[in-house]
């Protein structure tokens, strides 16, 4: 895994230099880091218990005491927002990482090995790609006898691994007959080593892009589940904020401050993650690397 290590250890300064040159990805990075900080520092930023007994007057617009106002019973929405960031990012990053590991392993190996194993796996991948994702997620969450953020994460992984696997497989397949792969084979490298030491470093930037999209999709799916009232346990999230906003009449009351922050946050985090992709090509493509 020397190649991966090499890419990962690529010094911090040159990484920052690449982001600095790519203004789009710099914007993305700043957005993502901001949300990560909001999530990590949640206990220090939230002055009130987000779901406990009411902490102030209800239906308050943003003020100094309540930067995002309060909801129908007086919960502080800023506190809900920062704790909600945790759930979104936890589920998103965990699911993204798991899809990444699953998709890279299955996709690269399958594409390299080829043959019947590959054919069979791709049949399954195609079926998963065709099944309607959100309805399937809803179905699984409703019927599975387990609950909580981890179950949500796993269900999202099960329903969304196929896309990344297919992309990685297509890449890997295009490398399998390349001379340098044959050279590695002639030197005695086995399928696993060829897949991860020889092929993977070449498609690292695509793998990273895939990870960003998986994270975005996972954050969206989690929010959707919470919005439908399939909340991941007894927690607040951006999705549950919108769920309560809808069911408690935020629209009729015109309480935009209850609705705007969680949705805008979902849009911004997705935007930030996708924008970061513009730096990955330069970071992980050896041809573009500046030494």
């Amino acid at each position: 895994m020397g190649g991966t290590a090499m890419a990962l250890l690529y010094s911090f300064r040159s990484v920052m230099a690449v982001f600095w040159r790519n203004k789009k990805s710099l914007v993305g990075l700043i957005i993502v880091i901001t949300f990560v900080l909001i999530a990590v520092l949640a206990p220090y930023e939230s002055p009130y218990n987000p779901t406990g007994f009411s902490t102030g007057p209800a239906w308050q617009p943003p003020s100094l005491a309540h930067p995002m106002g309060t909801d129908y019973v007086g919960h502080d929405l800023w506190s809900q927002f920062v704790w909600g960031a945790r759930i979104s990012l936890e589920v998103g990053f965990l699911a993204g990482a798991m899809v990444q590991i699953l998709g890279n392993t299955l996709g690269i190996l399958s594409g390299y090995i080829g043959g019947k194993v590959d054919d069979g796996l791709m049949r399954i991948v195609d079926i998963f790609l065709t099944l309607p994702t959100l309805p399937l997620i809803i179905l699984l969450i409703v019927f599975l006898p387990f609950h909580g953020p981890l179950v949500v994460t796993l269900v999202i992984v099960i329903t969304s691994w196929a896309g990344h696997t297919r992309n990685m497989r297509a890449q890997s397949y295009s490398y399998r007959e390349r001379d340098f792969i044959l050279a590695a084979k002639a030197s005695g490298y086995g399928s696993l080593r060829i897949s991860f030491s020889e092929i993977f470093p070449n498609i690292l930037s695509l793998a990273m892009a895939g990870m960003m999209y998986s994270i975005v999709a996972a954050i969206g799916a989690e929010a959707a589940l919470d919005f439908l009232g399939l909340a991941s346990g007894n927690t607040v999230s951006w999705g549950t904020m919108l769920y309560w906003a809808q069911s408690e009449g935020a629209i009729i009351n015109g309480t935009w401050w209850w609705i705007v922050p969680p949705g805008l946050a979902l849009a911004l985090i997705g935007f930030g993650l996708v924008m970061m992709n513009y730096a990955f090509d330069e970071l992980f493509n050896p041809r573009l690397r500046v030494l």
């Binding site: 959707a224 919005f227 629209i251 949705g263 979902l266 849009a267 924008m275």
Partner: peptide, 18 residues
Amino acid sequence: LNFISSIPNFWLGFLFLI
């Protein structure tokens, strides 16, 4: 474009309604 396609569509509906 990337920002537009990142917007959760149901939230956009929320804003339209309000």
